[in-house]
Design a binder for these strands. Structure first.
Lengths: 157, 157
DNA sequence: TTACAGGTTATGGTATAACATGGGATTTTA
DNA sequence: TAAAATCCCATGTTATACCATAACCTGTAA
């Protein structure tokens, strides 16, 4: 039986001249029994790197394989985009991975990386970009709050 | 021992005068326990070579015989085209395969080959053609993003 | 609260192994 | 018998594994 796991918390680590970063120890602890590597790719929607287990990608591959849509153009495009961009990043006994040039450039990361937990996935950001993004998200939530309160009142009436 | 069998990442390798190319080591690692050869054929829809394990073709054949009318006549023909075109390419101890003239010509490959992971399959492209294709796909997929299926969104959110 | 000790994690540097690639020898095929 | 495919060895380059030290965090006791 597979135990569930979550990437949570936000951790800032340094990136050295070779592009090495320590994966947060909490993240490693989660993977310890599963593997010693994670999969990373460029986010489609944000200037950041996304990471997940290979298991998650494999699930996607299995679904596509079984969809009988062997010759669909749309599926073809999608698989190219996802699997072509993803790459395995093994980490050694000290827990570091080697970020590629492509990923660092996409996220604007030079000497510092911020790891942000997202449940089954996590993201890696440039510190300034993450600060802005977090502020944006918080503002977004606040804007919607009055609406949420209204529905709450409806419940209490 | 690896549990999943995913071709991922994009790797560029040189093709020497004899038509030899190194299969990316990650791709070889996947096959290590299964075999020392890969199956390649001309893509039906794009100017590139497609590669996969013989196992995948076998699965396709099994699906055809078990669900006679699941595939349309057209897809049936397409599948037969693939079987007719496919050929086994063994790789030696250094991990190289010998691309055939037919395949190289179809993909416009001369001295450089780009391997693009597609999950259970991969593609081999001429570098310039792949650059164009990747740009096209990114634009296309972003346009259709709201329509993407659930599993894809689970990976790319 | 402060200071300290012990264990864990992060980071810098270096030795080692793996890989891609070129060249040539040997075998197979037409 | 020539041409082509396969195999084997050598080498430069790059990425990986390993070790050492520094920073950090946690708990305990003054």
């Amino acid at each position: 039986m597979r135990k569930s796991f979550l990437f949570i918390d936000t951790i800032t680590n340094k990136v050295d001249a070779k592009g090495r970063v320590s994966l947060p120890s909490d993240y490693r602890a989660i993977l310890k029994e599963l593997s010693t590597e994670i999969v990373c790719y460029r986010s489609l929607t944000a200037p950041c790197i996304e990471g997940c287990t290979e298991e998650l990608l494999d699930k996607l591959a299995a679904e596509m394989e079984n969809s009988m849509d062997f010759f669909s153009q749309e599926q073809d495009d999608l698989t190219n985009l996802i699997f072509g961009d993803a790459k395995r990043f093994p980490f050694d006994s000290t827990g570091r991975i080697n970020l590629s040039e492509k990923l660092m450039k996409h996220a604007g990361i030079t000497d510092t990386a911020v790891f942000v937990g997202k449940g089954r996935k996590f993201q890696i950001w440039n510190p300034e970009n993450w600060a802005k993004e977090e502020a944006r998200i918080r503002a977004e939530v606040l804007k919607k709050r009055p609406v949420l309160n209204k529905s709450a009142e409806a419940v209490h009436d």
